[in-house]
Design a protein around this nucleic acid. Structure first.
Lengths: 144, 144
DNA sequence: ACAAACATCTTGACAATCAAACAATATTTC
DNA sequence: GAAATATTGTTTGATTGTCAAGATGTTTGT
């Protein structure tokens, strides 16, 4: 890191570094599951909606992709038995997307990885630091 | 957010949210430049090495892709006049990758976006919080 | 000089992505 | 209630990002 740097520049670079480390961590973890990161991301998004499954359109919006993209994505994950389309009760144009048992297992397992990483990360922080870090993240997130 | 949640689970989710917000922010910013995020990421990596340009192999390693991937990436950015290959002085197998003037301009401009975002983010934090946030990030990054 | 190691590029394959066109179903308007 | 309009999901065609494997030229060690 350059010797002369404003506080903002320093923080900006730290955010970039954190982002990159999280990226490559996720890639490593996902590779062992045989899925791509985009596929795992889809599993995470679907798994996060347990109880109120989303339609294609809603899921696509939430993920920031077009429905065309999502169609092929869901096709492949459905072929692998990780999730399934079930017809919408009142709107026959739509499907609701939900994880299968197999998909849920994968989702939970992956979630455990996240928790483990978070534990490792926070292990080096004091209780005070941890609390403040959480509070700061909360502020930042709600403001972005 | 679920009512009952361990501190770790909460923090884990916050990290995911931060990551996703940074992703979509970057996508929005990059879209206006006419490049893809992968291309902009390459510009950032190359731009970050001002003064000691890297070879294909080194850059590929740094970016976590194969040299084959990097070849086509650099081809396209070179076609757009954003960077260039220059022969390595002593090793005729290698090229050094560096930004052109046009590429540097783009790089600086993008960097400004990062700084502006960081400023926005930190604007809501007290000086104390800011300092502690930086210190915590430092710890986390060096430990990951 | 020769073989082994190395750096890059090329090729072939596939996944992810979008925009635009399309088919089926819903909704609105008259 | 029929016709026009809107919405939802899929398909198609194009581009990009990616890797693995192989080809080509270069360097290094013996």
């Amino acid at each position: 890191m350059p010797a002369l740097m404003t506080e903002t520049a320093k923080l900006s670079q730290q955010l970039v570094e954190l982002y990159e480390k999280l990226s490559s961590w996720e890639e490593d973890v996902v590779k062992n599951s045989g899925l791509s990161t985009a596929q795992m991301h889809t599993i995470e998004m679907v798994g996060h909606e347990e109880g109120s499954p989303l339609r294609m359109k809603e899921l696509a919006k939430k993920m920031g992709v077009t429905t065309g993209t999502l169609t092929v994505m869901i096709d492949r994950l459905e072929q692998q038995g990780l999730l399934q389309r079930t017809p919408h009760h009142t709107d026959r144009r739509s499907y609701l997307i939900a994880l299968t048992k197999k998909g849920q297992t994968l989702f939970v397992e992956h979630h455990q990885y996240h928790l483990r990483l978070t534990e490792e990360i926070t292990a080096t922080l004091s209780a005070e630091e941890q609390a403040l870090f959480g509070a700061v993240l909360e502020k930042i997130i709600s403001q972005m």
